[in-house]
Nucleic acid binder design. Structure first.
Lengths: 392, 392
DNA sequence: GGTATGTTGCCATGGCAACTGTGA
DNA sequence: TCACAGTTGCCATGGCAACATACC
């Protein structure tokens, strides 16, 4: 209430802890006499970022982008502190925030975003998702404009890592190919075992329908509409209170479906189909554990994996217990593997990021160029591939 | 020029970088409601320290004292940041300074000293206070008192010299063993090649003296008095204007030393000796590249490595060019390897640290427990040892 | 109401570069 | 006068604990 920022940016300029001590009239140090900032870098910043209220970028992301820019432009990079000075001199009024889950907060520049048309949007954001926060209204003391901000607040507030449907399109490029995903095994039943009122033709229909069902699921996964899979499950297994296409019900009534599901042969068929299908989905979602994936995508996948079992369980409540076991067993293995893969992917990216941020990496690399790999191996006591693994 | 603050004094109070942001009337946070500071610790502080103008204490020293106090009093210690708050709440008006040689500055509390009657004064005095920096007059803007401070300023200004030596003591535990460090090769010269006025016995003397010289250097390295090595070099090679023990000069006059240094056999001897000696020093300073080392120690080593060549060059200016090449060649390889080792060490620690902080590491570990290592290997495409390498 | 968790103030440390005093 | 080296301003990051909010 005391001071409002006038129309202006109003900076309590640097004011670090060193500011204590001797309150001189001229605490601020004059800008460097020599304009040591590379123009190309400034231009690059202006080309790729702009100021924007209510959004934030992790400093590490910005710096990682910058490091890549340097590699590509053959510039030698400055350290994070100096880069911070540059950033703040180019984009006035940036503020500091520390966002992230408890114990994992990261420093962000608040008031800057990647330009919509920047190629950086295609890039892999750095590790550790900061999750999408800001879903709610910003703190009172932050948002103080004349009231016109209510309109698109929901959108403007999202921080860099928020996964929206908009991101989905970009995420698709990280997926693998869906070849041979549909199960190839066939359902075979000894006709003697068929229960009352169920014919061989019904069994064959089940086989076909199950594969079509898988195809539908596959389609959703390819389009990353992971939350819709539950609907397919419910429909296929005729969850009570879920409306079913009358045509389908006519072809294979729920009653017959349940009788089939109770057969051990059918259970075996489903089990085999599910395992191979989930294996394919796995390779679709995480085609290469070492290939960088945007944290928004890993987060999406992890959330998906986390909810799988519950979601499935609620969709197939009415079917025979033995079949439930089969389905749950398969999906739970799938879920666990997905989580493991995304964990490892995250791990690799974290390592990579550290190495990129290390101010000494340059020195080390130039050192390593003069060393043969046998030596490095001895040095590290592990495979030299570790270096390749870690490097950009 | 941009911002004037209203009529008010407006102190940039604590003013950390966080101070930017949202200028509220009450930016300062109230003192903790609960007096969580242990009374015994406050009393201990009051017993052992008092405020004093013009003197400073390294924070690390103060904190080390505190840690010892905690051990003795069976208190569990707080971390340095919290301890800082305590200190500043007990001794008001402390200011921050960063003192030390270039590249080795350390944070000090300025305006506090150990009480004259404190037992802390009995603690480890320095081994060999190098060049106890002469206390000059404080900067104008620092010394602002009424003028009564001139009296003992010279004495009061000197900063606590034991600061670094205390770290040094702790650092020694990270060193390797100095076994077989002294070069074993012998100087052999065909007597026909001996120059005018130099006898075989002189050559043998050189051999002995050189090994003693190495021993002296080794001793300094063991005690991490790395900055004193330059002195030994100067003395051994009789740098002009550096006083030499007359006894030494009598045994092997500079003139003979230079003649010997011009011999290719002697150069070969020195070269071999130096390479093996530096190799030993390397294993002493960095016995294991993967073992964590305090960053203060790596920094010390890196600084040492960085200055080696310059320091050597300035110490051996007068000796034959060929010998200079030999010496510089060896030391430069040594320096580079030291830097490479410390880089790698730093790297490993950085990776480790990231992984420790990662919120997903726990999940990943528990996942991994259910996977056999062959699987992991396939998964990663690299040796599974990478995981061991990275993990705590 | 209580509990869980994200955010932020205040402390810490460290790197670089500008400033500054000193000595060759 | 110039080079060197100590000091310090401004940036960075991280930990802890108080605060604030959201969710029982």
């Amino acid at each position: 209430m005391v001071q409002q920022m006038g129309g202006h940016a109003y900076l309590i300029h640097g004011a670090t802890m060193d500011g204590e001590g001797y309150p001189l009239a001229q605490t601020t140090r004059a800008a460097p006499a020599t304009v040591s900032f590379d123009n190309r870098t400034v231009q690059w910043l202006l080309d790729n970022y702009d100021v924007a209220e209510g959004v934030s970028l992790p400093r590490s992301t910005l710096y990682a982008h910058y490091m890549q820019h340097c590699r590509q432009a053959r510039l030698d990079p400055m350290n994070p502190a100096s880069f911070g000075k540059l950033i703040r001199s180019v984009f006035l009024g940036l503020r500091t925030r520390r966002l992230g889950t408890r114990g994992n907060s990261k420093y962000h520049y608040y008031g800057i975003r990647i330009k919509a048309d920047s190629p950086l949007n295609q890039m892999v954001p750095d590790d550790t998702p900061v999750a999408m926060r800001q879903a709610t209204q910003p703190h009172r003391r932050i948002a103080k404009s004349s009231g016109a901000d209510g309109g698109d607040a929901g959108n403007a507030m999202k921080t860099e890592a928020a996964a929206t449907s908009q991101d989905t399109e970009q995420h698709k490029q990280y997926l693998g190919s869906p070849e041979e995903a549909i199960p190839q095994n066939d359902l075979t039943i000894d006709s003697k075992n068929l229960p009352q009122g169920v014919t061989m033709s019904d069994a064959n229909l089940f086989d076909t329908m199950y594969k079509e069902h898988c195809e539908a699921v596959l389609d959703l996964v390819q389009n990353l509409h992971l939350n819709l899979i539950e609907n397919l499950w419910q429909t296929f297994w005729r969850k009570t209170n879920v409306s079913v296409d009358p045509e389908v019900e006519a072809k294979l009534p729920k009653e017959k479906l349940l009788k089939l599901a109770a057969l051990s042969e059918v259970q075996e068929f489903v089990k085999e189909a599910d395992y191979s299908f989930y294996q394919a989905l796995l390779e679709l979602l995480v085609p290469d554990v070492l290939r960088p994936i945007p944290s928004t995508l890993t987060q999406t996948i992890r959330n998906f994996a986390k909810g799988l079992e519950t979601s499935l369980r609620s969709s197939i409540g009415g079917i025979p217990e033995a079949m439930i076991s089969v389905k749950i067993g398969a999906v739970s293995a799938f879920s666990q593997t997905l989580r493991r893969y995304t964990s490892l992917n995250h791990l690799a990216q974290a390592a990579r990021s550290v190495l990129q941020n290390s101010s000494q990496i340059t020195q080390m690399l130039s050192d390593l160029n003069r060393v043969d790999f046998a030596n490095v191996q001895v040095l590290l006591g592990v495979s030299p591939y570790i270096l390749l693994f870690m490097m950009p």
